[in-house]
């Protein structure tokens, strides 16, 4: 279980390798990678700036990991989130969930991503031909997160 908030890119193979190196009770590894799209709000996007809250962000990501591990039987979790200047095609976020069987890993990875969207203190600013603009939060992301509250 660990989180990283960093400017640098990440290597998925290396991250999975690190998880596998220390244990052999993992039967399923699910990874999600988020990328910068070249379109946003119907406009071409040429660059993205990701702002975050230093000191608070790590704590928020750890809380999300902790909640996932309370809900599912996971052997390992990992969240890497980048900040700073990014461009279309760049990797933004990595979520890994590892469990003995695939069901828990699939669900936990989706859970962590849904919470990241609404509970991690990041703000995206996109550069478009009309200038730079802050990305609005999407109602769909709130809905996606809220469904985990259902009994």
């Amino acid at each position: 279980m660990s989180v990283s908030v960093q400017i640098e890119d990440f290597d998925i193979s290396q991250e999975i390798g690190t998880l596998k190196a220390v244990r052999t009770d993992i039967g399923a590894v699910v990874t999600f990678t988020g990328l910068v799209r070249d379109m946003g709000g119907g406009q071409p996007v040429s660059a993205m700036e990701l702002e975050h809250w230093p000191g608070m962000t790590e704590q928020a990501l750890e809380e999300i990991e902790t909640q996932a591990r309370q809900r599912w039987s996971l052997k390992a979790t990992r969240i890497v989130h980048r900040y700073g200047a990014l461009k279309p095609g760049d990797q933004i976020v990595l979520v890994i969930a590892a469990s003995p069987h695939r069901g828990a890993a699939f669900e936990a990875a989706e859970f962590m991503m849904d919470f990241l969207k609404t509970r991690a203190p990041f703000w995206k600013k996109e550069t478009t031909p009309q200038g730079a603009r802050w990305v609005d939060a999407r109602d769909a992301d709130d809905t996606a997160q809220a469904r985990w509250d259902q009994p």
């Binding site: 988020g34 809250w53 608070m56 704590q59 989130h81 933004i92 976020v93 991503m113 990241l116 969207k117 609404t118 509970r119 991690a120 203190p121 990041f122 703000w123 995206k124 802050w134 990305v135 609005d136 939060a137 992301d141």
Partner: peptide, 25 residues
């Protein structure tokens, strides 16, 4: 560093943060 609302008390508080809805991920 705890999410709250506009009516929250500031008694004893050291820090207040204002921000738009988060757009992580």
């Amino acid at each position: 560093q705890t999410m709250t609302d506009i009516d929250a008390s500031l008694t004893g508080a050291a820090e207040v943060a204002f921000f738009p809805p988060m757009t992580g991920g």
